[in-house]
Simulated assay, not measured.
Amino acid sequence: MGRVWTCAGLRWAERGPELCWVGGRRSALTWGKRVAFAVAGGGERTCRGARGHPCPLRAPVPGRSTGARCEECARLERAHSVAADTVADDPRPYRVYLAWFGPGLVKVGITAAARGPARLLEQGAVCFTWLGEGPLMAARRTEEMLRAALGVPDRVPYARKRAVRGALPLTPGERAAEIAELHARAVALAGRPESLTPEPFRAVDHAGAFRLAEAAGGPAAVGEVAELVPGGAVGGELLAVAGPDLHLATERGTVVLDARLMPGWELVPAEGRPCTVPVREFKEAGGVQDGLF
């Protein structure tokens, strides 16, 4: 069977996206790269653990879970999550942002200032702008105020992001138009926390980093991987990566793989094998633009 690898997830580094493996190895996801793997037959998917520690029970988790954690490990992970609003005394500075994923799909959020744009890359934000920087609670209050005043959410399901990704405006200016208007409305609001230093509008466009324009030149995606299964294989040419989504050109057409489905499985090389995992077909042509990995 050869060497077995266990995926620890996808991360965005300065040089671009990369797959992380248990044990510390990383694999850069370069454009045009042929990526192929299979799930070891006869095995089951096990919990990835929490806070960098393995699950003590090696509990089984469903193939369609994007969290890949059992109930106890998910609770532990969430207990230390700023996003879950369970941490109130973090002394680090935080930044508030507006993120745009496609026409009519904008969210407001916060991220630690030291992380820079990493959080936006992880979420698959096609473009974004900073709104301000300050203490955690000031950033959190600003986020809540903007949700109510601007009518934008703080969470967007990945399925909706994929659904609008196939109809993106062509130019950075067009892609930034919605967040430019919302930024102007945000800075005009009264009652914002004084400890949050406002930041001027400056759109940062990730379409190039994701390679969405190049992928859009090919055929529209036909579907997305529903789950990995024992013995199932995935293989194809990497066209684009947006957030956790790997867009691959396979013999079945362009398919999207959410890399969050990979942790917890034992994976082996599978060069030359066809794509044999369950694929959920898109109902509308062009609903998602790219393919799998």
Rank of each mutant, 00 (worst) to 15 (best):
V204W: 03
G124Q: 09
P117L: 11
G104P: 04
A113E: 14
E174K: 07
V108N: 05
L131S: 11
L150K: 07
A188K: 04
E199T: 11
A99H: 02
G191C: 03
L196G: 05
V187W: 10
G104W: 06
E178F: 03
G116V: 10
L105I: 00
P135C: 13
A159S: 15
I179M: 01
R211P: 11
G191R: 08
A125C: 10
A118Y: 02
R185E: 09
P135V: 10
L121I: 08
L168E: 06
I110K: 06
P135L: 12
V126G: 09
G134F: 09
F128G: 05
L150P: 02
T129Q: 06
A184V: 01
A207K: 01
L120V: 03
E199I: 11
A112C: 12
W100P: 02
G208N: 01
L150M: 07
L131G: 08
I179D: 02
P103A: 08
A112W: 01
V106S: 10
E199Y: 12
A190G: 14
T111W: 03
V156Y: 03
H206N: 15
T197L: 14
A118H: 13
A113T: 13
R115Y: 00
V96M: 09
A177H: 01
P172E: 02
F101A: 04
H183F: 06
W100R: 05
R202D: 02
A112E: 14
E178C: 01
L196Q: 05
L136M: 08
R115M: 07
E144K: 15
P153G: 03
E181T: 12
R211S: 14
R162L: 15
R202V: 08
T111C: 11
F128C: 04
T197C: 12
A148N: 00
V156L: 14
L150Q: 05
E133K: 08
T129W: 06
P198G: 11
L121F: 15
R119S: 07
E199F: 13
F210G: 02
V106P: 03
L136Y: 12
R147A: 07
G208L: 11
A186L: 10
R155I: 00
W130H: 12
Q123E: 14
D154G: 09
A184G: 11
T142H: 07
E144F: 13
G109F: 08
R211W: 14
E143L: 03
F101K: 04
V152D: 02
A176N: 07
T197N: 06
G116L: 10
V156D: 03
A186C: 12
L182G: 02
R160F: 03
A114R: 14
S195F: 00
E133D: 01
W130K: 00
R115Q: 13
P172N: 04
G191T: 09
P157I: 10
W130V: 00
S195Q: 11
W130M: 02
P193W: 03
T197E: 15
R165W: 12
E174S: 08
G102Q: 05
G151P: 08
K107C: 02
L98K: 09
V96R: 05
V152C: 00
A139N: 04
E174Q: 15
I179E: 01
Y158F: 15
V187S: 10
D154S: 14
F210A: 11
P200G: 10
P200E: 13
P135I: 11
